Structure formats: structure tokens, C-alpha cells
Simulated scan of single mutants.
Amino acid sequence: MNNSPPVPDHSVVPTNFPRPRPVVAAVNGKLTESLEEYDGKLYALGSSPLSLWRSWEICEELAQHLAAECCELQTGAWVHLSKAEILANQFIRMEKCGWGTAPEMHWIIRRVAKLLDWTPLLDDTP
């Protein structure tokens, strides 16, 4: 019986999914970069194929959840709001809760709009 976790398919991470910027810090007067190792290679912290896949998986799951919630809100409590206002309110909720980095939250809202076939927010750039 194999109890190993499944190997993630890194190819499913969309090319438009945000990549973290390298973190560079000064230690004892020298610049250093935070690195992680994956499959024998070094990557900037958070940018290995496994780290990107994990981040994308969380963001995709949240986008799927929010898309379903937006449909419910559109016909229920937020029936008086436009689709753009619903998306904007969802973004504000994510921001207040700290549900990811700014680029991830923008990606999530764009993904929600795509899943619902709604027009994405015009000012949705990190």
C-alpha cells in the first residue's frame, strides 16, 4: 500500500498565475537571496514548481468557491448589485481577510469572472 502523497501536475498551473518576486536581504553586509530546493535545483523562495502548484491549488479552490458564492449572491442578498460590484465586494472581503498576496487575490477575482463568464474588473491590476 502506497501512502505517499500524489505527485502534483505542475503543468496545470496557468502561465498567468502570479510568481513571487525573489526576496533579497542584507546579512552582515552581503546580499543574500532566500532559496528553496526542489528536485535537486534551487529556486527563489516560493517559486519552485511544487510551491507554485500549492499556491495555485489554494487559489483555484478559492476561486471555485467564490464563483459559486457570487451566483448565490447575485440572485439573493446582493441582487441589487451589478456583477462588477459583486466582484469588487468579493475582492474587498479577500483583502480584509488577507487571503493571499495582492497578485494572487487579483488573479482569483479574474478567475472568478472567467468561471462565471462575467466581464473582469477594469482596475484589477496589482
Rank of each mutant, 00 (worst) to 15 (best):
W118K: 07
A88Q: 09
L45Y: 08
E33H: 01
G98K: 05
A102V: 11
T32M: 13
S4F: 10
S82V: 07
P14C: 11
P14K: 10
P120G: 11
D9P: 08
A88Y: 01
A63C: 10
N2E: 13
A63R: 12
P126E: 10
L73M: 14
A44P: 03
P49W: 08
R21L: 11
W118G: 02
D117K: 14
Y43E: 06
H80K: 13
A88F: 02
H80E: 06
L115D: 09
R110P: 00
Q64Y: 04
G76S: 14
E37H: 06
Y38L: 03
Q90P: 00
S51Y: 08
N89K: 12
D123K: 03
P126F: 10
A63N: 07
Y43Q: 07
L122Q: 02
L122P: 02
L52V: 05
A26R: 11
W107R: 12
D39R: 13
E60C: 03
E72A: 12
A88S: 11
H10P: 00
S82C: 06
R93E: 06
T101P: 03
G100H: 12
W99E: 15
L50W: 10
R21Y: 02
P8Q: 12
K30P: 00
E57W: 11
L66N: 11
N28G: 02
P20R: 15
P120Y: 09
S11R: 14
P103I: 10
P20T: 05
I108F: 02
F17M: 09
A44Y: 08
L115W: 03
E33C: 14
L73H: 06
G100P: 06
V13L: 10
N16Q: 07
R19T: 11
A102H: 13
A84W: 01
S34M: 14
K41A: 15
Y43G: 05
K114L: 13
P22M: 11
P103F: 09
L52I: 06
G40W: 10
E61P: 00
I108H: 02
G76W: 07
M94S: 09
R111Y: 01
V13E: 03
K41F: 09
L73N: 03
D39F: 01
V79W: 04
A88N: 04
R111K: 15
V27T: 02
V23M: 09
Q64M: 09
D123Q: 05
